[in-house]
Simulated scan of single mutants.
Amino acid sequence: MFLHEGLGSIAMWKDWPHKLCEQLGFRGLVFSRPGYGGSTPRAADVKWPVDFMQRQAHDVLPALLDVLGIDSAERARMWVIGHSDGGSIALLYAAAFPDALGGVITIAPHVFVEDVSVKAISAATALYEQGDLRARLSRYHADVDSAFYGWNDIWLSSEFRHWNITDLLSSIRCPLLAVQGHDDEYGTMAQIDAIASHLPHAQLAKLPACGHSPPRQCPAVLDAAIGAFVWRVRSTRSSGTNQER
């Protein structure tokens, strides 16, 4: 299951999920979260709450899986791959359902708010309102203002500066790979280092010459890191239990 970034959608993934699933031998589930892509837009007067990512992980994802008829046995084998906000949601889902997940790959996740993130999102506001960002994003969202301002307003709110999910990470028991680019303009290595400090079993992949969007900026390096990690997990499970989750 692929969870897109804060301004993402099904279309913005392009063909990366399909190629990765082919490489890994997985089936894939890709969807646009409410407010994004072709999903139900956010009403103009609705503001995302500070805990919007927790609500996605605790309420929206389980409800989606229920509607799709994905049972508990299938969920226990499922891997979640999340990017940026989607990476944070993946972590929150794994923490909330520690015995019901095959593994997590979190790419450029946020576990607390950094000044660099706020600065980059403020710069995105100017590009959206004065540059060509709105036109570029409008190709991927039925209601582009719903997508942009839902993300932008909560991230730049004073209340959100104190958002922090590091104390929840220790509940995660499934295999976990955390990926970060060295040139990420939206976050530093402190994000995935914090994950490792709370989860000794977590594996880290720090990508050189890569920014906030490894699936677009360095897909070959990212795919190699993910492939090696999944292979190690499969090998460990095969040798330990003679079956793969």
Rank of each mutant, 00 (worst) to 15 (best):
V111G: 02
K119N: 09
L127C: 01
V116H: 00
H141L: 06
E129S: 11
V144E: 09
S122D: 15
F148C: 00
H141Y: 08
A147P: 10
D145N: 15
P109C: 06
F148D: 01
D115W: 03
Y128K: 03
V111K: 09
S146N: 09
A147W: 09
A135G: 15
Y128F: 15
I121L: 11
K119C: 01
A126L: 10
F112D: 03
Q130I: 02
E129D: 15
F112C: 09
A124I: 00
L133S: 00
A123M: 06
Y140Q: 06
I121D: 08
Y149G: 01
V113Y: 01
E114H: 08
V144L: 08
R136T: 13
S117D: 00
E129I: 04
V144A: 08
F112N: 02
A126K: 08
H110F: 03
H141F: 04
I121T: 15
V144G: 10
F112A: 03
G131T: 10
S146R: 03
S146M: 07
A120S: 14
A123I: 06
Y140V: 02
Y128H: 04
S122C: 05
S117G: 09
V113W: 01
F148Q: 01
S122A: 15
R139L: 08
D143T: 05
K119I: 10
P109Q: 12
A135C: 05
R139C: 05
L127H: 04
D115M: 07
V118R: 14
L127W: 01
F148G: 00
S122E: 15
Y149P: 03
S117W: 11
V116T: 11
L133N: 00
R136Y: 08
Y140D: 11
E114D: 10
R134N: 05
A120Q: 08
S138K: 13
P109T: 09
I121C: 06
R136G: 07
Y140M: 04
A120M: 07
T125C: 09
